[in-house]
Simulated assay, not measured.
Amino acid sequence: MTNGRPRALVTGASAGIGKSYAEHLARTGHDLVLVARRADRLEDLARELADATGVEAEILPADLGSDAGVAAVVARIEQGGVDMVVNNAGYASRGRVAELDPDALETMLRVNVLALSRLSAAAMKSMIAAGRGTIINVSSGTVFMQIPGNAGYGASKNYVMAFTRHMQAEAEGTGVRVQLLVPGVIATDFHEVAGNAIENFPPERVMRADDLVVASLRALEMEEPVCIPSLPDIRDWDNYAAAEALVAKNCSRDRTAPRYHGA
């Protein structure tokens, strides 16, 4: 903490969901470490937040698609004084599996999967040692869908979901909170970067980034480990997890299921 304030490190902080996290956390008294590729945007945001709220906002320009960029952020986490990590950075490179650009796929996976894993590992180690801390990993509602052209991105966010749920199991009793955030369609420039347009979605399916972030932070207060902001009843997630557990119970037996014993 600095001056008695907690400090949050937010990746992808220069725009969209990450910027909204930075703004809300600053207003609630968090000092910040702002991570994104573009230093000029980070400088502008840090100045705005410091002027508006009086918090300390340090910037860390880093490309999480590169080893050097990931190493720089890991080093900052290991330096200490980070009470919250928001793993928000990520993007979609889409295409049907038979037509995927292998280089574009690999670059996306470096950000969505490898960078998130390394930052999560560094944060878990530091926070478990401190006996406190919060990690928010941003997945996607597409984990529940199979959409042609979305295999690479959807699978990367399925990884985020699985990795985060394992983190939650390992965090029990340590004082560390781990949230899995599952956004739907959010009104940011994410879709334009992915080659789509927000106008292509029905308005009733599109949420504002600010509303998403408020739900995420409220879910922390409510101790909900999984935040699906537009899900009316969290018991739907509980039922999903229960169905998963039922399959898990029977996926490793000493004999095959009766239906495979042909007449």
Rank of each mutant, 00 (worst) to 15 (best):
A22L: 06
D211S: 06
A123D: 02
D189K: 04
R253L: 10
E99A: 10
H166P: 07
F190I: 04
H24L: 00
S126P: 03
I198P: 11
A98M: 14
I59T: 14
N158E: 06
P148F: 10
L9P: 01
A171Y: 01
A123P: 01
A71W: 07
G175H: 13
L181W: 04
D83Q: 02
N3W: 12
L231P: 07
Y91C: 02
K157S: 05
L231G: 14
E192D: 08
D44M: 13
L109H: 12
R165V: 13
Y21C: 00
P102C: 05
T188M: 02
S66Q: 09
A71G: 15
L109F: 13
G133R: 12
E192F: 01
S252Y: 15
P102I: 15
A248R: 10
A194N: 08
G90R: 02
G262D: 07
I228L: 04
E224M: 14
G154V: 03
E106G: 12
V185I: 02
A122I: 10
V160P: 01
V55H: 11
L60Y: 10
Q146W: 07
A92W: 14
A248H: 03
E78P: 14
G133T: 14
E221L: 05
G29F: 12
E221M: 08
A52S: 09
E223C: 04
A68R: 08
D210A: 10
R218L: 05
N239Y: 06
D101E: 05
W237P: 09
F144Q: 07
R96P: 15
R47K: 06
T256W: 06
E56L: 07
V111Q: 09
P183W: 01
M84S: 06
G4N: 11
G175P: 15
R38A: 02
A219D: 12
V226I: 10
V33W: 13
E223G: 02
A171L: 03
H261Q: 06
L114A: 12
D31K: 09
A52I: 02
S139P: 11
R37E: 04
Y21Q: 00
L212V: 00
D189A: 11
R255D: 10
A57M: 14
A62S: 09
A257W: 14
N150M: 11
G4T: 09
A13V: 01
V178K: 08
M84R: 08
V193A: 05
A129Y: 02
D31Q: 13
I198T: 13
V206R: 02
E43S: 08
V55L: 13
R118Q: 13
A92I: 11
V82S: 03
A98D: 10
A151Q: 04
E170Q: 05
C251V: 15
V178D: 12
V70D: 06
G90A: 09
P225E: 11
A162P: 00
A215D: 07
A68V: 08
D233L: 11
A248M: 02
E56W: 03
L32G: 05
L180H: 05
A123F: 07
L25R: 02
S230C: 08
L60Q: 14
V111D: 01
G54C: 13
H191R: 03
R235C: 11
K125R: 03
A50F: 09
D103F: 10
M108Q: 12
V185P: 00
L42S: 07
L109Y: 11
D236L: 09
S20R: 06
I17W: 00
I136R: 00
A75C: 07
V247F: 12
T28A: 04
